[in-house]
Write a protein that binds this DNA or RNA. Structure first.
Lengths: 295, 295
DNA sequence: GCCAACCCATACGTTTTCGGTATGCCAATG
DNA sequence: CATTGGCATACCGAAAACGTATGGGTTGGC
């Protein structure tokens, strides 16, 4: 079954004449006649009554006509939809984000996205440091808001901002009375740490910070997520060194203080598969930059 | 936009591999690769991610896939529907009938038709002697139950029965007391006649009958339909010579009596366009014959 | 009643497109 | 480093489609 034949068939049915239809199709009349006869041979029944005044649909032809025009419309629509998706006017964008960034960025990002790409289905998924690479690589998320960036040959990264480290502690901690905490005051205090560097690069930034200031903090617990870290801080298990934006998701009872003399920061980055060429990624990047600028 | 390309596209999308899809399509892998690339060129965007492990749909590809499979199904369905109509398993059959036959035949014919061709939409239209030819020729009815048959080079006729003439009169008429009315008793009595022979061939049969028996009946009124004829008979305007089956549609107050020595009859026939080859016509003919046999 | 106009069907040569075979390139694997 | 698996490219033969020329039938006008 060839769609070209159906196109010819519909044209002849509408023009009720081979000659008129051929003219509209910008072709000669004889090949059109041949194509119609081939179509009839394929179906096994005549589709037109041939009179001296032109061609007239048989009942079988009428039955075919309805479906044929629908099928053509659907095929054309499919092509159009594919083009629209490729152009970023329609489609689906699955956004992964790490918890630390959720409260600071999403309220600014999501409205901006909806305005920029109406007609695109948006999905959001919270990512953990351990799974974010896999989710990008298997395409279950299209882009990821990461902190810090992912380092992987297949994954492309755009740095859109940075956040300084702050100290998270219970409100009753004696250090909470200081406006800014000198690094030296951390010496010997228990630390709630994230997974080791090979699993979460944020840890290595924290480790480097402590090492540079020659501060040693015993690691009391390792937790998977920033969320858990704050829960343990609240429970009095220790202190945590977290990017500033984490404080927006912190429960009551936890306070954040700047670290004096520590200029270290953690990058905020948008990450995506190097072979994803959707224009939605570019649009997303712009929206994310705007959201960061207003943080 | 070619349906073959869409078929190939769907096959590759399902097999997630050019090689596998080529095998299923009974063709070699290289031409399939070419066709997919041509489709992508036509759309203007890649439809697959080419990895080392096979082909994977892009979002644009997914958008196309949904429509493409629907379009293919619709096209196939259209072909199937056209075949079914051509085979008489589906479609529409518009049945024209003349009023004289309605009460005698339709109650037997319609259930038989519904049993024989389930899935076919049936339509019924009452025909007058003056329009029945035109309705067949412009295809607004597919077959016509006629009495007598139509005589026209474009129209084919199958005689399926005959009905003797009877005399229709008011129940109070003195002739109504006879079990059968001799032709001679009609001499001079007023006749309610149908339209003249060139408009309604039934008239010429009646005229021939009277001529052969050398009976003259003055024509009081000409009416268009058997229906009207009976109304005038009931009103005492005159007598009518009608086929026997007309009595089934007669109002109370009219009686029918056989005409002694008159063996004339009027044919019942099924008529259709000579160029209508629908198998539904053959089926209809069988049903009509059955219905006549049980009259 | 004949001729012109119209419309569809057939025939044949040309061009385009498609499919098959051979081969190359790349990455993953052992 | 060689092998394997998968897609892409090149080239050739085959099939399909298109255009031109032409035939046959009917309608309508002179």
């Amino acid at each position: 079954m060839d769609l070209r034949r159906l196109r010819y068939f519909v044209a002849v049915a509408e023009a009720r004449s081979l000659g008129k239809a051929a003219e509209r199709l910008r072709m000669a009349q004889p090949p059109l006649s041949v194509q119609i006869r081939k179509l009839e041979a394929e179906i096994g029944a005549p589709l037109f009554h041939r009179g001296t005044r032109g061609m007239d649909l048989t009942e079988a032809g009428q039955a075919l006509l309805a479906r044929a025009s629908e099928a053509m419309a659907l095929a054309a629509d499919g092509v159009e939809a594919a083009r629209a998706v490729a152009a970023g006017k329609r489609g689906r964008l699955s956004v992964g984000y790490m918890f630390v960034l959720a409260n600071a960025m999403l309220p600014r990002l999501i409205p901006e996205l909806r305005r920029s790409v109406p007609g695109v289905d948006l999905e959001f998924a919270e990512l953990s440091a351990s799974t974010r690479e896999a989710r990008l690589l298997d395409r279950s998320v299209t882009v990821a808001l990461c902190m810090p960036a992912i380092n992987h040959p297949e994954i492309q990264v755009a740095r859109i901002g940075a956040q300084p480290f702050m100290l998270a502690m219970p409100i009753r901690s004696p250090l909470a009375r200081l406006a800014a905490v000198p690094m030296a005051r951390l010496q010997g205090r228990p630390l709630i740490a994230l997974p080791p560097p090979e699993q979460d690069p944020a840890s290595s930034a924290v480790a480097a910070l402590l090492r540079r200031h020659q501060v040693v903090m015993p690691i009391m617990s390792r937790v998977e997520t920033v969320h858990s870290a704050m829960s343990l801080v609240l429970a009095g298990e220790g202190l945590a060194i977290l990017p500033a934006c984490a404080r927006l998701g912190a429960p009551r009872g936890i306070v954040f203080r700047p670290l004096r003399d520590a200029t270290d920061s953690l990058d905020i980055a948008v990450c995506w598969r190097r072979d994803s060429h959707s224009p939605l990624i570019g649009t997303f990047l712009k929206c994310a930059e705007k959201a960061v600028a207003r943080m």
